[in-house]
Design a protein around this nucleic acid. Structure first.
Lengths: 189, 189
DNA sequence: TTAGATTTGTCGTATATACAACACATTGAA
DNA sequence: TTCAATGTGTTGTATATACGACAAATCTAA
């Protein structure tokens, strides 16, 4: 505890490991990536890997969180208005992310990926809802955020499954009025 | 002396420093690059830099050697025939290198760069000459290698000074017959 | 010129990492 | 099945690196 914040070596090593994992993810499937592969690419001793991560699934989780977090933070938080534009942005960020990373991952870890994405989405939606309604805390908004996160994530799964020919934007655009104005919206509007 | 060869940390650190230096060389002039800049980019403590390199000029020298060495090794050594094709390749490697790195460097260190390039060229030419003539060692070939290294390097300087509109290939091609067959070559040939 | 700021190069101490070795699990071919 | 090979996770010890501090050199502006 004599060190001030975080040792530069720690930051560097974590970055090297994560970058290498992302790099390798572009070359082969998650299930074929070994700890040795990662540490070789990162020029790190294998034992050092275990100093920072419990195992390779722990690494997966942290990389996903971090990459997602950056994607979402960059494009959304500043604006902090939950409107058509920001929903499209969030949805696009997710589909981009799925195209670039989660596709490659081992079957069976889609659950992990799905959970992480939804958790982050929930946080983002909740914060935006709070600002929009000028509130400190609210159970209704929290639940609404949960619903939105599952819903939007589900839409991205559906898009990937059956509508990758459409752009994410046009896919989600149709439903946005129902999200914003509710399901009683007059469809002739 | 208990370690077998070279500590992975050493290899990694050297690579990080060199890569960072090359990266920074693309962003600003050599004379504006500080040790702090490099170590920040490399995520290395400044003191560690001095553990590996005497100073920034020592780094420059080693980076130049290494980059050049790779360029020349990759494209030439395998073939090991000193003919029109390989001379063009070597000349192109040098001009590429000059375009990418040495241009950006501080005036006054062109001498260093020039020396390093010529030293490497000399080694390459000497090895190729030895193979071509099936010899073990020979003073005449050594001197010939010196002449070739200065000559080819000088040609690259001239190209840079006055003929960058031509491709390196067409620039050097005209003189290759005189190199291969000597200055008594019948020009009508 | 002077004075403030930046950069260089070095040092001692604390710690993250390398290395080698280990037992155990998983895989794949005979 | 069995055996060999490969991957996982852990440990103790040696060492490269981080950190903070320092004096001296170099740069910059007033």
């Amino acid at each position: 505890m004599t060190q001030s914040k975080t040792d530069l070596r720690v930051l560097r090593t974590r970055k090297l490991i994560m970058d290498s994992f992302i790099e390798l993810s572009g070359q082969k499937e998650f299930k074929d990536i070994t700890v040795k592969d990662i540490t070789t690419e990162a020029m790190i001793n294998r034992a050092t890997f275990y100093y920072h991560f419990q195992d390779i699934y722990d690494l997966l989780e942290k990389v996903l969180s971090e990459v997602l977090l950056v994607d979402l933070n960059d494009s959304i938080y500043e604006k902090s208005e939950l409107n058509e534009e920001s929903i499209i942005r969030i949805f696009t960020a997710i589909t981009n992310f799925q195209k670039s990373l989660s596709n490659r991952c081992h079957r069976g870890y889609e659950d992990t990926i799905s959970r992480i994405i939804r958790e982050h989405l929930e946080i983002v939606f909740y914060k935006m809802l709070l600002k929009q309604h000028n509130m400190k805390e609210d159970a209704a908004l929290k639940t609404t955020a949960v619903i939105l996160s599952w819903g939007i994530y589900g839409a991205s799964v559906e898009w990937r499954k059956s509508s990758m020919d459409k752009s994410p934007e046009e896919f989600i655009k149709l439903s946005i009025p129902y999200i914003i104005f509710g399901i009683t919206l007059d469809s002739k509007n």
